[in-house]
Amino acid sequence: MELVKPEFGLIFWMSISFLIVVFLMRKFAWGPILSSLKERETSIEEALNAAKKAKEDVANLKAENERILQEARNERDLILKEARETKDMIVNEARSKAQTEGDRMITIAREAITNEKLAAITELKNQVATLSIEIAEKVIRQQLSNDDKQKALVQEMLKDVKMN
């Protein structure tokens, strides 16, 4: 029965020392230990979260890059298409312009040719007329160079007049 009888002295010392120990341990052991453990846990958790976030960021960045690349590609295609169109347009325009210019020049040339021809024909006519007169003058002069001939001519002419 001695074994199960609580002893006052032991309870007294146990209470005092245990209370002191709890107090001291709380202040000098558990406090720092638990707070550092917690600190470490939070820091690990934060690091993990940061890593996760970084991963997400990288993924996002990749997607963004892909998107930008795609956009650039599209833009390039668009620009190329536009350039092609512009080129075609410019070429077509140039071609049509050249065509009209050519036509116009041909027309002018044709008109000029006609004018020149007419002028040439007129001049030729005049020249022929002048030459004819000159030739006629020379011929007449020759025929009328002596009196016999003049008389013959007058005779002839008179002959004609008599007929009338």
Binding site: V21, L24, M25, F28, A29, W30, G31, P32, I33
Partner: peptide
């Protein structure tokens, strides 16, 4: 206990 755990806390 105090020895062990204050040491660890340190």
């Amino acid at each position: 206990m105090l020895l062990i755990f204050t040491n660890i806390a340190g």
